[in-house]
Design a protein around this nucleic acid. Sequence first.
RNA 1: GACCCUAUGGUCUAGCGGUUAGGACACCACCCUUUCACGGUAGUAGCCCGGGUUCGAGUCCCGGUAGGGUCGCCA
Length: 445
Amino acid sequence: MSTRVRFAPSPTGYLHIGGARTALFNWLYARHTGGKFILRIEDTDTVRNTQEAVDVILEGLRWMGIDWDEGPLSGSDRDACKGDFGPYFQSQRSDIYREKIEELKSKGFAYDRDGAVYFKMGREATLIDDLVVGKVRRELTDREAQDPDFVIVRSDGQPVFHLVNVIDDLLMGITHVIRGEDHLTNTAKHIALFRAFGAEPPQYAHIPLILNSDGSKMSKRDEGASLMAYPEMGYLPEALINQLVLLGWTPGDNKEIVSVEEIIRTFDLCQVHRSNARFDMNKLKSINYEYMRQLSMERFVELGRKAFERTGMLSSGWSEEYVKQALETCKDKVKTFSELPEYAGFYFTEELVYPPEMLESEFTQEARERLAMLRERYTGLEDFSSASLEAVLKALAKELGLKAGPLVHPLRLALTAAKSGPSLYHLMEVMGKERVLKRINGLLK
RNA sequence: GACCCUAUGGUCUAGCGGUUAGGACACCACCCUUUCACGGUAGUAGCCCGGGUUCGAGUCCCGGUAGGGUCGCCA
C-alpha cells in the first residue's frame, strides 16, 4: 500500500516553525517512500479563519520548496484544490462529519449531554506503537479516571479537533500520522475513535518539539517562531531545511550539510530522535553561510538586491550595473542577506557618517598623514583598477617602510566608515575615482 | 495533582556492553591575509544523580532529579 501522509495546520495567521518542521518531515517521508503528501486545512475555528491566514501557510510551504500532491491551491479560491479525497478544508466537510457523528451515536459510541455530544471512552490503558517513540502504554490520568468521556461536538454544533482529525485521516486514507510530540498522549483518544469507526488506526510517529535556545517552549512571540521570519532575516530556505532536519535526525558519517535530495534519499522515521531540541540561531547562520557560498553570483546579486530593497536604501538612482558590481564584492562575506545593508550600505549613500568614537580611536595624526599621501598617489592614477590600486598602495607602503595595514586602515575608514568590509581594492574600483577621492577629501578636510 | 516522553561539552549530535567518548556550531590561541571572512594548526569544555545486572555500563534495569508534553464545549 502506498504511503499517504498529511500536514493539517490550523490557519491562525502565521506558520509556526515547529509546524513547518512537521510539514517538512511528512513531506520528506512521502518523497522518500514515493507516497503522497496531502495538505489539509483544519479551519473549524471560524473566528481566526481567514483567506490571508490560509495563504500564509501556502506561501510558507512554497518558500521552503515543499509541494503537496493533494490539497488547496489558494486561500481565496477554496474550490481550487487538487486531489480525489476532498474537500481539503474542514469548513467544507460538515455533512461528512454529521454523518459520522450519527454513525457513532447509532453504534452506541456517542451520546448527548448538556447539548454537546460526548464520545464513550474506555477506562483501560491504551497501547500506542509509535514509529519514533516506541511502545507506549498510556494510562488514564486521575482527571480522566473520574470521567473518561470527552466532547466531540460542542453545544454550538461545531465538531471538535479530535473528531474531525480522525474522520479526515480515515476518509483520506492516511497511513502515517507524523506530528508533534504534544499529541502523543492525545493519541489514545484518536485510536479509540478509529476503532469506534471500525477501522484500524494509522501508524503514528511523534516527532520531538523545537524549543527556544534557553530550553523554554517556543511560543508565538519568540524570536524565530514564525516561519516567515526566516526569509525576512535573510536566510535561504535550503539552509533552514537543513537546520530543521538536523534537529532530530542525523545524516550519519559526521555529515551536516546535506542537500534536500540527499535527505529524501536517506530519511526515515525510525532514526528520528525522541528528545526535544533547542533552536540555535548561530548554527543556522553558519549553515546559511555554507549555502550562500554555493550560490551562483547571479542568484546572490538578485537576493542581495532584494535585501537592500526591503530597507529602502536603493530608492535613489543607482544604476543596475553599479548595484551589481557592488554586491559582487560582498559574495562569501556575509552569513545572511539581512547583514548586507549594514555591510555594504556605504556604496549607496552620498553622505558617509563617521562615528566620532571611531574617528577618535582610529584616525590618528599618523593615519591622517598616510591617508593624505594615498590621496596624492590616487589623484594622479589613471588606471583605477583593483590591481593597480593595490600596486600603488603597496609601493607607497614599501617606500615608507610599512606593511600594508597602516595604509589600509585609514583608507577603509575614509571610504566605508567601518573597520571591516569587502575587499578594499575591489570596492574602490567599483566606487570609481571620483567618489573615492571625494570621500578621502571629506575625511581629510 | 495524575498520566506520557526525554536526559552525552554552552547548543545540535555520533555512540547502540570493552572507544585515548568522535563530529559540527559557539568560544579561544597562533599562522596566513588589505580588513572581515575563508583556510591551516592547536586548545578549553561532556556521559544529570543514586542504586542494581555484569568480569566490565555513556550504553541494560529500577528509583530520584531536571526539562518538555497532555489531561478543554482550543487546535
